[in-house]
Design a protein around this nucleic acid. Structure first.
Lengths: 333, 333
DNA sequence: TGAGTGTGTGTAACCGGTTACAGACGGAGG
DNA sequence: CCTCCGTCTGTAACCGGTTACACACACTCA
């Protein structure tokens, strides 16, 4: 492996000069620069990033901690982060937490020791104290879907409650008379907010009943299971708002197996807007979060923070939008 | 940040001794060890991984280069790699190549400069010369789904051709009389092998015709589009073997939209066994590769290589298996 | 002519670890 | 009593970069 000293020797200069040429910092004479560049060329020299990191205290690496890369929401997010990081000259370490607190702690420690430049937390069991710890260690972080904490870190969220209201309104406008909700895990803030939106939208309607809310754990299987119990209690449900697309897909499956036609018998609306929601038949109406955009923004802000740029807004709330597809089609009544 | 010298000072020993305690190497007196450990505790000292990497020429980081993390096949693979790496004390950098040669070159260079310990290539445009380059730089690599190269690197593959034969046989056994193939991109070796398997299985049947093979680009959209042209030319097709699950899902969608019942009118079989193939209605029969197992094996072998262990087999060919689900159900005739 | 400024370059300390080597000590063996 | 060896510990070089500081030189301006 050729080092900066080899280059210096070949060009007949000191290592400091080579370093200056490399980084374009300080003064370097015109012809000296040429000689150094020639030597670099000839030796096919590439600076050693690790040594650089040690001297700089910068690694050019960011990490993203997420529950599970196999969840399409997070793989899209990860993709966005990596694309953005690459453009900014960063590489990305990814960590699957499975929402396990211990696992997150482990990652945080490992990443700190690695001099990671910054972390994007898309994992849910992240606590306030983790944020404090990161601040103490001066590691910039960006978190997704957290309640606005007092701590100085960028938070990216989307309008979960407003989106849920949109979903229910849309179902009503297309002719639904009794709308159920398949809810995500109660401990997740996104699930809470979407449930809140649903409650707000159905408030005051005589048909509403608490038992129209069923848990679906944000998973396909959960969505599947939720449906059967629901339809037993409420055979006349004609609209379902699922707290995320995975549960909606599960519900769709279960309904089709039960012989219910979508949207003829029951309309179905998801939340998230993962690519997969286009892959079902019928395609799924959903409240789309700008997932890619969230990932991009998270990475952009993190990198800005790393570069020490003052970042104005600390909480970014992104718009969601209704993507109307065939799982909810207007019914004449 | 507390350093090894702080610990040494506090324990009243030299840095060498602290290092020995940390690594359990060399001789250390019993009581000295206790003193050092106490100092480490009290200062909450954690060794700096970057400095360690510089001295060791080891980073404890591996990379996985894949076409696109949003493709469920690769996200499952990535998940397996990360799980295995974590168990072995490694972290994982991931790189989306989009099968772009230039992008891969870029990553390879960046990763080399970062002293990466090893690389898993699941990307397709990787050339023989890249492998040579990695060997020159003594960076262990494992590649997936490549032709057995002469070069000294572990190759993990699965029985694509045999799997394709299984698929076609299965379709015939369940009553299909005319079976089409939606093929992946011709430049990908996996697609080639599956096509070869299809050809082998249909050889000699009078109903076979070259135009039963249609391209589907390994994507959902590709699968969708493939179907319409196919059914125009061959309205009597009653079985389709898709080269991967994504195309099968696309085909399923298109067929359902055309009013064809699956499996009543047409049977459908995919390839890969991604989790998503269970999420359709009907669920998809598929030739399952042990995706997680492939990722796990890739990581295990890579880590073994990194640790300098002699690895016996250089080519690992994993079994595929038929997962029979509702998209192919036996029809009485 | 001398001070002051801008430019170009080298020396050496530093980032925070690992480790080769040397020295000190105590006990066993001749 | 001397030698040899195993145990324990410290000094300092090294991994491969960055950069503070010192110095040299040329040029401008009073």
């Amino acid at each position: 492996m050729t080092t900066i000293r080899d280059v210096a020797a070949r060009a007949g200069v000191s290592v400091a000069t080579v370093s200056r040429v490399l980084n374009g910092s300080g003064y370097v004479g015109k012809d000296t620069e040429i000689r150094v560049k020639k030597a670099i060329q000839e030796l096919n020299y590439r600076p050693n990033t690790v040594a650089r990191s040690l001297a700089n205290r910068k690694t050019g690496t960011i990490a993203v901690i997420l529950p599970d890369i196999m969840n399409p929401f997070f793989s899209e997010l990860a993709r966005a982060v990596e694309d953005t990081a690459r453009d900014g000259g960063f590489t990305v370490i990814f960590c699957n937490s499975d929402d396990l607190g211990t696992r997150e702690q482990h990652y945080i420690e490992v990443l700190r020791q690695k001099y990671i430049d910054g972390i994007i937390f898309a994992s849910n069991s992240m606590g306030e104290d983790d944020i404090v710890y990161m601040n103490e260690n001066r590691i910039p972080i960006v978190v997704l879907d957290r309640a606005p904490g007092k701590s100085g870190c960028t938070v990216i969220r989307s309008q979960n409650a407003a989106g849920a209201v949109m979903a229910v309104r849309h179902l009503m406008e297309t002719g639904c008379r009794k709308i159920a909700h398949i809810a995500g895990p109660g401990e997740l803030i996104t699930a809470q907010e979407r449930l809140r939106g649903y409650r707000k939208a159905v408030k005051g309607f005589t048909w509403f009943d608490e038992s129209l809310i069923v848990p679906g754990h944000f998973s396909i299987r959960g969505g599947e299971r939720a449906v059967s119990g629901l339809l037993e209690r409420h055979p006349d449900v004609d609209g379902i708002f699922a707290g995320n697309d995975l549960m909606a897909i599960g519900a769709l499956k279960a309904l089709q197996r039960m012989g219910r036609k979508i949207p003829r018998d029951i309309s179905l609306c998801g939340f998230d807007g993962v690519e997969m929601s286009e892959w079902t038949e019928p395609e799924l109406t959903t409240i789309a979060q700008p997932i890619y955009e969230m990932g991009r923004k998270a990475a952009t802000h993190l990198i800005a923070r790393i570069r020490g740029k003052a970042v104005k807004e600390d909480i970014l709330e992104l718009d969601v939008r209704l993507v109307e597809r065939n799982s909810t089609r207007r019914r004449k009544n």
